[in-house]
Nucleic acid binder design. Sequence first.
DNA 1: TAGATTGTTAATCGATTAACAATC
DNA 2: TAGATTGTTAATCGATTAACAATC
Lengths: 212, 212
Amino acid sequence: MSKLKVMSAPSIRRLPSYLLVAREIQEEGQEYLSATYVANRLGFEPIQVRKDLAITGISGRPKKGYPVKELVATIEHFLRWDEEHRAIVVGAGNLGSALIGYSGFTTHGLRFVAAFDSNPAKAGQQIHGVPVLPMDELAGRVVDLKVSLALLTVPRDKAQDLTDRLVAAGITAIWNFTNCKVKAPDSVVVQNEDLSSGFAMLSVKRRLVEIG
Amino acid sequence: MSKLKVMSAPSIRRLPSYLLVAREIQEEGQEYLSATYVANRLGFEPIQVRKDLAITGISGRPKKGYPVKELVATIEHFLRWDEEHRAIVVGAGNLGSALIGYSGFTTHGLRFVAAFDSNPAKAGQQIHGVPVLPMDELAGRVVDLKVSLALLTVPRDKAQDLTDRLVAAGITAIWNFTNCKVKAPDSVVVQNEDLSSGFAMLSVKRRLVEIG
DNA sequence: TAGATTGTTAATCGATTAACAATC
DNA sequence: TAGATTGTTAATCGATTAACAATC
């Protein structure tokens, strides 16, 4: 077992970009990959890359760098992207449909098995091959669909109610794309994805650039 | 003029959620809103809310809190969400279409005037009322469409090429939804939105909960 | 060997939290 | 007035960066 390292949220968030670079280098047939190279590619400091990679438990070779194949496998395992994650999408609107269709998630083990929508007209349809089911079947289907993860893409005023229903149905992880901060028991993992905060950053950066 | 405060990225990212609470309270007809109340609602510390709000230049009243109407206006102005931001969407796929259709952005002043796609079959169509134009018209239309912001929602391998073309065409802000870190001159603001990093956080949090 | 790189330990930097005077 | 709240200044906490020995 590797030593327990401090895992900061920023470090974890940077891992996917390291994985991307590592996969690319792996395809080029390189055997080793240095933190220096990764840092140059992504605009980070080499020491930061080394520290971040350390949390996964990988160990590199002085002078050579990290063995690429092992690095890819280690990051994937650390992020649990080497397992299948069966998920449902709650709210089959624009965003829900887009997320189902986003191919990038398949390399993270994410597999959408059903979508739910309160609009009866959508029930029975398919979105990118994923069946849309009526919202009132939600509670009954979580178990037989064998899902523990739900993506929440409903209007903000329905977010808390659906969270409660998802928790009651046995869902243990919620990826929340509404800008409503939902409450759930500690045993349920909630990850909030707020596009507004990104746009806030963009706007403030623009002003700073204009001012100089 | 208000004193210049330190603006940290985390603070800026929290402002939209304060704005949401403030708007809600405003609709309820309340005149004042305290940092304590906002903190309770969002699960933050009151001191953090006060510090964050301070960067916008707003000043509250001891005992009462912040005047709600002024607070809403001040945050909106600080984030430039009180102006119109004309934008194009480059890549009219699933994600691009979903972002055009996302109604939440209209309250942030975001207005989509056109989408561009390399698939000729899509040109001439409309997505949620926004015309789709052929990609080779990109350079020529940026000026007459009067846009300075572009949302990048193309496959990762086309991200850098299109960034270069956008910059050459006069775009000064890019909201990048690809997981490719694009390079642009310092005068161009780039905001990277990486869904993978959110999923990485979710996965690691899940393991921590399972371990206990 | 010499140079490049890892990984540890220490230093710095920045963000969050605490303490408290001012105030309505 | 008393209690609640703001906003400043100081303390703490955590993340990033630096220094450097170990090593292939």
